[in-house]
């Protein structure tokens, strides 16, 4: 448990830093900004207590918000993702894996399930994020386009990072 705490603490800090220092500077065609820090929420173990899941989600979003000067926007999106994560987990995975309290990573779930899991999670997060940022449904399709393009990049990066970490 203590070992896990250290592991997740390092992951939290490094994902936030990678996000704000590197990925926020990828300004491909002015449309695409991948947000892969949500990977932290995805990788929390399945049997984590709900209050820790929501609390960590909020903290994660708030950390990114402070760097982006956008209070509330990222934290709202991450809390929504944290809330829906058990549901998404049930949708894509067998009861057996969930009850064992495994970490939902690429190795445990297999490629197809992990891909589905990531797509659902990233879409939920990005949809909330981009509409909260625009704060209106004016320019609905323009925002939708930005959401979808950025989601594709985020999903690809999340999958790539999993392959790098678990390559052996």
């Amino acid at each position: 448990m203590i070992k896990d705490f250290g592991k997740y603490a390092i992951m939290f800090v490094s994902l936030v830093l990678i996000q704000v220092l590197i990925l926020n500077n990828i300004q491909f065609s002015g449309f695409v900004n991948p947000y892969i820090y949500v990977l932290f929420i995805l990788l929390l173990p399945f049997n984590i207590p709900g209050y820790i899941l929501l609390g960590l989600s909020f903290l994660l979003g708030l950390s990114v918000d402070i760097f982006n000067s956008t209070p509330g926007i990222h934290s709202g999106a991450t809390v929504l993702l944290g809330f829906l994560r058990p549901g998404i987990g049930n949708l894509i995975s067998s009861r057996e894996i969930i009850e064992k309290g495994n970490t939902p990573n690429l190795k445990q779930l297999g490629f197809a399930s992990f891909l589905k899991y990531t797509i659902f999670a990233v879409l939920v997060h990005h949809l909330f994020l981009f509409y909260a940022e625009a704060f209106s449904f004016g320019g609905f399709f323009h925002t939708l386009l930005r959401t979808i393009l950025s989601s594709i990049f985020s999903i690809v990066l999340i999958l790539a990072s999993q392959f790098i970490v678990f390559k052996n």
């Binding site: 909020f58 979003g61 918000d65 209070p71 509330g72 926007i73 934290s75 709202g76 809390v79 929504l80 909260a132 704060f135």
Partner: peptide, 8 residues
């Protein structure tokens, strides 16, 4: 979510 909304 309410806190986030107030922040926004």
């Amino acid at each position: 979510e309410a806190i986030s909304f107030v922040l926004i």
